[in-house]
Amino acid sequence: MKIMKLWAFLLFTVLLAGCSASQPPLMDNPDAESTEYLLDSGDTVSIAVYGEPEMTMKFIIDKSGSINFPYIGKVTLKGKTPDQVSADLTGRLGPDYLQNPMVTVNIAEFRKFYVSGEVKIPNGFAWEPELTVEKSIAMAGGFTDRADREDISIRLAGTNQLLENVDVRHTVHPGDIVIIGMGFF
């Protein structure tokens, strides 16, 4: 009898662990991705070295994807997460410059995405996590009176691929261009 109870308990524990391991999606968006944000040109990062105020500063990542950090020189940030950059800087500052450095890297401002066409304020805007076409249109002041609300395209950053007639719930990534077409009345 004790063995049956033990097996029942183990089965219940395994089932409970399996249920808690699955997590709901980040958004009600089929295009949502759960990957971490990777730094690139145009992002502004804040780097803090604990106990070293002269080494605490903000950097805009240049076109090569790098910054010039004191004592170390050129550091490539492009394609890395803030945690990876923190670990890299900690390792490079460690033995030669500081004992047990503690480095924190945060994103101070995301790189821009762009909204063009028939919106009230066509411009570049700082990207935000979980950004959708609908939110980007709102940031651009909404549709103009001439906008075709069904003619929405996105030119993808990096590939220049054009996605036509996208849904307003579609995800917008840094560097993307949201294009609102003009309606003919």
Rank of each mutant, 00 (worst) to 15 (best):
D88M: 15
S86I: 07
E54M: 01
I61T: 07
S66N: 08
I137H: 01
D83G: 08
L6S: 12
N123M: 02
S22R: 12
E150D: 15
R149M: 13
P101D: 12
G42R: 06
V133G: 03
V168S: 13
V119R: 04
L38E: 05
M182L: 01
T159D: 02
L156I: 14
L38P: 03
R155S: 08
R92V: 06
N100I: 07
G158W: 01
I3P: 01
F113D: 00
L26G: 13
S22F: 15
A138D: 11
P25F: 11
E150G: 15
Y71A: 08
T81N: 04
S41K: 10
G18I: 05
L131A: 04
E52T: 01
F113Y: 06
R111Y: 00
R169L: 10
I179V: 07
Q23A: 14
E164K: 11
I61W: 04
M27I: 11
P70T: 07
L93I: 06
I3T: 12
M27E: 15
V75E: 03
R155G: 02
K78N: 09
M27A: 14
R92G: 10
E128N: 10
D88G: 07
K135D: 13
G117T: 01
V85A: 02
R169Y: 06
A147L: 04
Y71M: 07
L16R: 01
F125K: 08
T171M: 14
V166N: 06
S153D: 07
D176H: 02
